[in-house]
Amino acid sequence: MQAGLDGRVLTFTKAGFAAPACRGTGGGTLVMTETELQQADSILGQFDDRRANLIAILQDIQAHFYYLPEDVLRRLARKLRIPLTDVYQVATFYRCFSLVPRGRHQVQVCLGTACHVRGAPRVLDRILTDLKLGAPGTTRDRQFTVLTVRCVGCCGLAPVVRVDNKTHPHLTQAKVRGVLNKYRLKRQSQEEVASAEEAGDRDATAQVG
């Protein structure tokens, strides 16, 4: 079964994501397209080549690709003239960075004490079934990544789920679908827009042709 972008296949394994390369490189890493590499270069170009910028750069890369591609990290190390280990160390240290592709929306389910007592595990269960996930991770269509986190600092609102940077308070199993749908809907309308544009383009070319 194939899913994801550009026909790349993601396989869920116990260790996380194994992402076999599609264009016959035989390696275990995702191959980036020329455009993606250009985008990465333009992100890298926005910063001074100072080590102090490392985290800011990584954040931008993560925000753009939803993960930190190996190729880009190598370029980054070369550009900042620091050992790749330094980059790797920071990239594996923080949970907001990921070396395997994450979904467009990050669903952070708080399993802290207060949320736990008020039923967070059930909310998590519901989210996982809704997204057809066996365990916290990324959905096949790479729209959602479910992460469990400890206290996010608003126990009064327990149980709490944060999607991207928005906090959804007092969740119940019944409310889960609605919350997720908000993000799903957005995506569908985006697609509609995109397909409409595409259709428009085709019309335009047809007219020109």
Partner: peptide, 18 residues
Amino acid sequence: GAIGFAGRGANRRVSRPF
């Protein structure tokens, strides 16, 4: 600088990048 630490907490380990 060919090896370094990766991960954190209980998962911290000495490793080579990738």
